[in-house]
Design a protein around this nucleic acid. Sequence first.
DNA 1: GTCTATACCGTGATAGAC
DNA 2: GTCTATCACGGTATAGAC
Lengths: 217, 217
Amino acid sequence: MNESKKISKKERILDTAEELFAQHGFDGVTIRQIAGQAEVDVALASYHFGKKRDLFDAVFLRRAEILNEERLEALLRCQATSGSAGPTVEQIIEAFLRPLEMEQESGDPGWKNYLALVAYINNSPVWGKELMSKHFDPLVARFIEALKKALPNANDEQIYWCYNYLSGALTLTFAQTGRIDKLSKGLCHSIDFKTAYDHMIPFVTAGFHRVCGQAEE
Amino acid sequence: MNESKKISKKERILDTAEELFAQHGFDGVTIRQIAGQAEVDVALASYHFGKKRDLFDAVFLRRAEILNEERLEALLRCQATSGSAGPTVEQIIEAFLRPLEMEQESGDPGWKNYLALVAYINNSPVWGKELMSKHFDPLVARFIEALKKALPNANDEQIYWCYNYLSGALTLTFAQTGRIDKLSKGLCHSIDFKTAYDHMIPFVTAGFHRVCGQAEE
DNA sequence: GTCTATACCGTGATAGAC
DNA sequence: GTCTATCACGGTATAGAC
């Protein structure tokens, strides 16, 4: 029937799970809450996804693949336009961050929820190592290779730590906690991703250059 | 009796709760797990602390107060030694970070657990705004005032966003997820806080200067 | 005042019938 | 695909021991 107009129940479960897991983490959400908010029967989630943990993985994977593709494209694009010297640090950071901004500003609220979930996972001692390493680090390794080329004086240890700072700055922004709104007395807004990235890119670029012993061109 | 030799059951509950909350978050831990690992009766936690949420708050508060004092002292100290021009950005960042390193390297594993818990809270949409704002932001506001003085060309919005990046970089380091160990193939270690701060300070300092339109001296 | 044993009652995940 | 039953577990209150 109206398969194009209505989103399927299966997808509604994913969307709702994404939203709730992002807010409260894996343990803070029950299957019943998800089913209730998605207006489906409790058992339907198990029917489609199996155990709660499998649903969690499905939520995480759905957009990880899309994001990896978009970021890879962005990296290849900036490598293609730069000469044999390769892209600058700033261009690489741009390629890493701008796909996120595009999705967050796309109007699909699912992306904001998803990236808040990534914030939760990235900072979790139990999930961070496992999920982030498995699903994002193969691509991150390509970005790091590009950074090494752009920073020939750096040693590897410096690059990895700088990536850690970038990752932390980025995911706290994902989390949309509203803390900056309060701290700045309403001057800044957690949901203002455009501004967040506009400042983050020069911030991180300068940090890489300083730590990795390279004057900015 | 041996009140000096043995730590009290009450403190054992706090220590264990700290460890488990840091690993799994508020919802990922049960009172029974805490009691079991602390080797006390289930009901003792409620007796001393009331509801689960109150125990969580007690864990959070215990070291927040100590940390605030130490950081304030460090700020005042660097303000006292600098002239009327006030401390540099790098000195302010040092004052903000070094007390953390001292506690993490102090040998008391409780501090490592506590700061991993702060990572969890800071990145949580439900706890971040409430707990961090209430208990840390009064002091953070003093650091930001000092930064404004050190960066007279900056506007407030830039400073707040830069603080956000600092906070994210810092708390991801707290989280000790072990992701960097894997990504760097064993070159870097999550628990190597000395190195983490040694690189973080110049990284963040350069970021502030770049975004806030100030050449580094 | 500190602590333990136990009981209560709601809720959760999941399997199996339909 | 849906409904329901099961059974374990969780937070918390209470009674009373030391």
